[in-house]
C-alpha cells in the first residue's frame, strides 16, 4: 500500500505543481506543455483509482488530440505577453474581488457541508464488482442503455460544432485544379502518347 500512497502523492503533487505552472509560466507554449503534464498526472490518478479506461481515454483524447491542437494554435499565434499583461494592474482589484467572493462562497458551501440522510440513496445504477467486470464493460453497459439518449445528444452537439466550423470558415477558392485520381488512372497510353516522325531540322 505504501507504494500506492507514494504514487498518489507523486501524481497529485506533480499535477498541482503543473497546474500552477500553467497559469504562471511566462511562455504560453510552456503553459500548454505543463497543461499536458497535468493531464497526464490526472490519468495516473485515475489508474490508481482503478479507472484504467478513463485514464487511457484521457490520454488519448485530451493529451493525444485536443492538447496537440492547443499547442498548434499557441505556437502559431505568437501571443504577445507583454501586451496581454498591460491591463493587469488595472483589472486586478475587480478580478481579485470576484475571486475573493467566489472563494468566500466556496468556503461557506464547504463549511456547511452536511451529507443529508436522504442523499445517501447511492448511485442510480449499481456499481458492478470490479473483480468480475472490467470498467470498460461496466461503462459500456450504462452508456449504451440508460444514457444512450444523452450519448447520442452529445454526438449531435459535436456534429453541430463541426457544421458550424465549416460554415463559418470554409471558403471555396475558384479556379483551383484538384487532383482527380480516377481520371489519372483512367488515362490510357493511346490518349497521352503520340509517335511522330519528325523531319530532320524541321521540328514537330
Amino acid at each position: 500500500m505504501i507504494i500506492q500512497a507514494l504514487a498518489f502523492y507523486l501524481f497529485a503533487a506533480v499535477m498541482v505543481a503543473a497546474a500552477a505552472m500553467v497559469i504562471s509560466a511566462r511562455n504560453p507554449v510552456h503553459s500548454v506543455l505543463f497543461l499536458i503534464l497535468a493531464f497526464f498526472n490526472a490519468a495516473g490518478l485515475f489508474v490508481l483509482m482503478g479507472a484504467e479506461f478513463l485514464a487511457m481515454i484521457l490520454v488519448v483524447v485530451y493529451v493525444g488530440a485536443v492538447a496537440v491542437l492547443f499547442l498548434f494554435v499557441v505556437m502559431m499565434l505568437d501571443v504577445d505577453f507583454a501586451a496581454l499583461r498591460q491591463g493587469f494592474l488595472r483589472y486586478l482589484p475587480v478580478g481579485g474581488a470576484i475571486g475573493l467572493i467566489l472563494l468566500a462562497e466556496l468556503v461557506l458551501v464547504v463549511g456547511a457541508w452536511v451529507a443529508s440522510p436522504e442523499a445517501a440513496v447511492g448511485p442510480i445504477v449499481p456499481i458492478p464488482d470490479p473483480a468480475r467486470v472490467t470498467n470498460t464493460h461496466a461503462l459500456g453497459r450504462i452508456l449504451y442503455t440508460r444514457y444512450v439518449f444523452v450519448f447520442q445528444g452529445a454526438g449531435l452537439v459535436l456534429l453541430v460544432a463541426m457544421i458550424g466550423a465549416i460554415v463559418l470558415t470554409l471558403r471555396e477558392r475558384v479556379g483551383v485544379r484538384r487532383q482527380v485520381v480516377a481520371d489519372q488512372i483512367r488515362r490510357t497510353r493511346a490518349e497521352s502518347v503520340e509517335l511522330v516522325d519528325a523531319p530532320k531540322r524541321g521540328g514537330v
Binding site: A112, S116, E118
Partner: peptide, 28 residues
C-alpha cells in the same frame, strides 16, 4: 453534490424532506 441525484424526480423527493432547511449548497 448536495442531493446525490441528477434526476429531477429524485431531487424533488430529497428536497421535500428538507423543504424547511435546505442545504446551503443546494441554494447556491
Amino acid at each position: 453534490g448536495f442531493s446525490g441525484a441528477t434526476g429531477f424526480a429524485d431531487i424533488a423527493e430529497i428536497m421535500i424532506g428538507q423543504a424547511g432547511d435546505p442545504p446551503l449548497g443546494v441554494i447556491f
